[in-house]
Nucleic acid binder design. Structure first.
Lengths: 245, 245
DNA sequence: GGAGACCTTTGATTTTGATCAAGTTGCAGA
DNA sequence: TCTGCAACTTGATCAAAATCAAAGGTCTCC
């Protein structure tokens, strides 16, 4: 895992602060928006920015989770595996989401970068100290948990009750709406996941995913520039095929 | 919806309190354990205890959620439906779980009693006032949300990657471990869900659920007294069939 | 530019679970 | 006790997706 620690010098509120978390400068959709300047400084002293390459594990299933992180750019897959190797992606996290399971050292998930991903991480003990001090921070983490819960439940409907065609369309819709959070829904984008990952996200096989993408292309619901790049001529059409009302 | 408001007279800390929420007397696994006596009193003044019969809706999908509730006894199904009627149960809540989606008026779920269920509910505004006052309460709600998120993600693995046989065994295991939280895992219990509900929880059809239950019976993984009552001779065996390591 | 690895697509066939269709069973109410 | 209905089970058939198999593509590294 390539680690690049980056501390840029910057003043906050005219005080002589030695360094500021690069993530927090860039993103306030993460977890830092709720902190006071002093707390932000405290956090930034312990933060580490690093780039994680695709397939690189951020936190292993069953391992001690010793850190929390903001995603600065990129996409992280959260997955679970059965003992025989069957795998399910149970969540995707996009910038500027916050990652980490508060209040437990045991992670039931594997977190892995899907594409090149920059994260800013801080040690568990620092985070937990700040949570105890800053009531707004726990509220922020709570809202993140509730958002992920809503998303997980939406996805359960997709996994349990949609056809392969609807599942693939639902996946494309999710990507279109999350890949570029600053600019809203994208009509043209690169898929952050391989066919194998898409299959693991949808509870399908690679072959079924491929066939359904081909069918969507033939039905003019999407256009395919190359295997990763997709264009959506009509988002309404895609949503309709996805079974989203 | 049959509503029985029940306020029992009881003293707390020797003060002259008019009434106490019956739920809070009985259960501290809910949300009340974190409150001070004064807050508990405040909450109890606004609480309503009622019995909800099976099939009765607690909160409709897309409706305004105007209350929070502790489940005193019983089981509540949380479900989502597609416009064409396909339905997925996205969560089961057992006593003494807390129900309600903080910080939003819009519920994306339908909450419905699966069996006779006693709940103790309080208005949204009272709850939100208490959350603002009592930091421990938000922490308690946060932990509940994280627990539900962990459960949802576990279930996603089941929905996406397990066979019908494993799904049914997983369901039976969930019931065995949750139906009587005070006494741990039960080896003999009544299913709180009909075959149709089980199918909606597992993303299967009624017929498939029935066949798999028959198969589990023939394989001596479970015994069936009647269509609702189940005995599990070996929990290890059941877990193994469920694909739980 | 070519070899090899990996990812993706496509085709043929099989399997799992869905669908269609009767029957049972159990239970509430006459 | 009988009747009628809803819930459940079982059987036959069908269809969607999995599996098995074989090509294409694309990319990296010589």
């Amino acid at each position: 895992m390539q680690i690049v620690t980056e501390h840029r010098r910057k003043d906050i509120h005219n005080s002589d602060i030695p360094s500021v978390c690069a993530a927090c400068e860039a993103r306030h959709g993460g977890v830092c928006g709720t902190l006071t300047p002093d707390q932000l400084l405290d956090l930034s002293r312990h933060s580490t920015r690093r780039r994680v390459e695709p397939g690189r594990e951020v936190v292993g299933q069953g391992e001690m989770t010793d850190s929390y992180a903001n995603i600065i750019s990129g996409v992280v897959k959260l997955s679970k595996v059965l003992s025989d190797g069957r795998q399910q992606i149970v969540g995707l996290q996009f910038a500027p989401d916050f990652m980490g399971r508060p209040f437990t050292r045991e992670s039931a998930l594997t977190a892995e970068a899907a594409i090149d991903t920059d994260i800013c991480s801080f040690p568990r003990n620092v985070m937990e100290r700040l949570v105890a001090e800053a009531p707004g921070l726990e509220h922020r983490l709570h809202e993140q948990a509730l958002k992920e819960l809503d998303e997980a439940r939406d996805w359960m409907l997709t996994l349990g009750r949609k056809t392969a065609q609807e599942k693939v369309a639902s996946f494309l819709y999710i990507i279109a709406t999350h890949i570029d959070p600053e600019n809203g829904t994208a009509t043209e984008f690169d898929l952050p996941l391989s066919r194998a990952d898409i299959a693991d996200y949808l509870g399908l096989t690679i072959e079924t995913v491929s066939r359904q993408i081909t069918k969507l292309r033939k039905d003019n619901v999407i256009r395919i520039e190359n295997s990763r790049r997709v264009t959506v001529p009509s988002m309404d059409r895609l949503m309709h095929v996805a079974g989203i009302d």
